Amino acid sequence: MRVVIFGGTGFVGVNLAGTLLARGHQVTLYDRKQLPVAAERSLAGHAESLGVVQGEITDTERIGAVIGKGCDAIVLGAAITAGEHLERTATESILQINVLAQMPILKAAIRHRVRRVINLSSAAAYGAAGQRYQLLGEQTPCDPVSFYALSKFASERSVARHADLWDRDFLSVRLSAVFGPWERIGKVRDTPSLQFQILAEFSRGEPAILPQPGLKDWIYAADAAEAVAVLLEAERPRHRLYNISSGTAWSALQWGEAFAALHPGLQCRLATPGEKTVIKLHGPDRAPLSIERMAQEFGWRARFGCADSAADLSSWWTKHREESLT
């Protein structure tokens, strides 16, 4: 397939690109930022199947031209992943980029008869429901609170409504807490995973001191990318919404300890009472996502657990340590 990934040079986009290229697809990355040099080198073996277009997500003319060249599928991955700071300082931009900027893309997809569109949403869409239920299925009533959660929930509904009005194969996925290679922070992403923050401390030669264990149904970026690829390749998905998660909860502390065990001299631990730590949690604890819809329909389950992901990211970090924080 010919796949265009909007927000393609971001953290999840780069992982998805690598997965799709390895599966034989042609990929175009559209983003305001350039592809990181290290990522470009990593994908160099697929140079003939990879294109990068630099542009703003609000540039409807350029976006229309990219889609008009011909593509079979689109991934909507451009977003402001906002914590409280960005909520206060970029409220309008969150809604503009995460919801309204999708409209011209969806219209172009309809006009050019794009086979499938997948909107990368977030478990944040469940909002306060995450504290009221023990397991979050796709049919669990949502209660989004933050502007980021509201924007993601609205994006799902917008994509679904376009699909209904024009009878198109458009769907959304709710990603759980993603971490892995190529993660970085920036002006549109101020909620780095605990794993990223742990590695940042390790890279500075400091112990990783966590304020809390950080228990979540974390999902490794390679697994998230594989799940999206499965949905892109599926003949006809039966639903318009899918949860993507490891399906198993474990703590960032446990992960950090497993990672540190592979590198003598590194330490990951909880802060002692009154001890300060630069590592920050983002958002309250929530129930894990149910992955039964993906498992039953496609036989998909995450391959990486706590120890496996620590070992895999250790290999990547060892190779890209100097570039991992830029």
Results as ranks from 00 to 15, higher is better:
residue 1 M to E: 09
residue 2 R to T: 11
residue 4 V to S: 02
residue 4 V to F: 02
residue 6 F to I: 11
residue 6 F to M: 06
residue 7 G to E: 00
residue 12 V to K: 07
residue 13 G to Y: 00
residue 14 V to W: 02
residue 15 N to K: 09
residue 16 L to I: 04
residue 18 G to Y: 12
residue 18 G to E: 13
residue 19 T to C: 15
residue 20 L to S: 09
residue 21 L to T: 05
residue 24 G to K: 04
residue 25 H to V: 03
residue 25 H to G: 04
residue 29 L to H: 09
residue 30 Y to S: 08
residue 33 K to V: 12
residue 34 Q to F: 04
residue 35 L to A: 02
residue 36 P to V: 10
residue 41 R to F: 06
residue 41 R to G: 12
residue 44 A to Y: 08
residue 44 A to D: 14
residue 50 L to M: 04
residue 50 L to V: 02
residue 58 T to H: 10
residue 59 D to P: 06
residue 59 D to A: 02
residue 60 T to V: 10
residue 60 T to Y: 03
residue 64 G to V: 10
residue 66 V to Y: 02
residue 66 V to Q: 07
residue 69 K to M: 10
residue 69 K to R: 14
residue 73 A to R: 14
residue 78 A to F: 01
residue 78 A to T: 15
residue 78 A to S: 15
residue 79 A to W: 07
residue 80 I to T: 11
residue 80 I to H: 09
residue 83 G to Q: 04
residue 84 E to N: 08
residue 86 L to T: 09
residue 88 R to H: 14
residue 89 T to A: 08
residue 94 I to C: 06
residue 99 V to M: 06
residue 99 V to T: 15
residue 103 M to N: 07
residue 105 I to C: 01
residue 107 K to W: 08
residue 109 A to L: 07
residue 110 I to N: 13
residue 112 H to P: 10
residue 115 R to Q: 15
residue 117 V to S: 03
residue 119 N to I: 00
residue 120 L to M: 07
residue 121 S to M: 08
residue 123 A to E: 12
residue 124 A to R: 11
residue 130 G to P: 12
residue 133 Y to W: 11
residue 135 L to C: 13
residue 136 L to S: 08
residue 138 E to D: 05
residue 139 Q to S: 14
residue 142 C to H: 10
residue 142 C to V: 14
residue 144 P to L: 02
residue 147 F to L: 14
residue 149 A to M: 09
residue 149 A to D: 11
residue 150 L to R: 12
residue 153 F to Q: 11
residue 157 R to M: 09
residue 159 V to W: 04
residue 161 R to C: 08
residue 164 D to S: 13
residue 165 L to S: 07
residue 167 D to H: 13
residue 169 D to K: 05
residue 169 D to Q: 15
residue 170 F to L: 05
residue 172 S to I: 00
residue 174 R to K: 09
residue 181 P to L: 08
residue 185 I to C: 09
residue 191 T to E: 12
residue 191 T to Y: 00
residue 191 T to G: 00
residue 201 E to M: 11
residue 201 E to A: 14
residue 205 G to M: 05
residue 207 P to C: 05
residue 210 L to D: 00
residue 212 Q to R: 14
residue 213 P to I: 00
residue 214 G to S: 01
residue 221 A to E: 12
residue 225 A to K: 06
residue 226 E to K: 09
residue 233 E to V: 03
residue 234 A to R: 06
residue 238 R to T: 13
residue 239 H to G: 05
residue 244 I to L: 10
residue 247 G to I: 00
residue 248 T to A: 11
residue 248 T to R: 13
residue 248 T to F: 05
residue 249 A to Q: 15
residue 254 Q to C: 05
residue 261 A to S: 14
residue 263 H to F: 06
residue 264 P to G: 02
residue 265 G to W: 11
residue 265 G to T: 06
residue 266 L to K: 13
residue 266 L to H: 11
residue 267 Q to W: 04
residue 272 T to K: 13
residue 273 P to H: 01
residue 282 H to K: 04
residue 286 R to W: 04
residue 287 A to G: 07
residue 289 L to M: 15
residue 293 R to P: 01
residue 299 G to N: 07
residue 300 W to Y: 12
residue 300 W to M: 01
residue 301 R to E: 15
residue 305 G to E: 03
residue 305 G to I: 01
residue 306 C to M: 15
residue 311 A to G: 12
residue 313 L to N: 05
residue 313 L to I: 12
residue 314 S to M: 03
residue 314 S to T: 03
residue 319 K to C: 09
residue 319 K to G: 03
residue 321 R to K: 13
residue 323 E to Y: 04
residue 324 S to I: 06
residue 326 T to F: 07
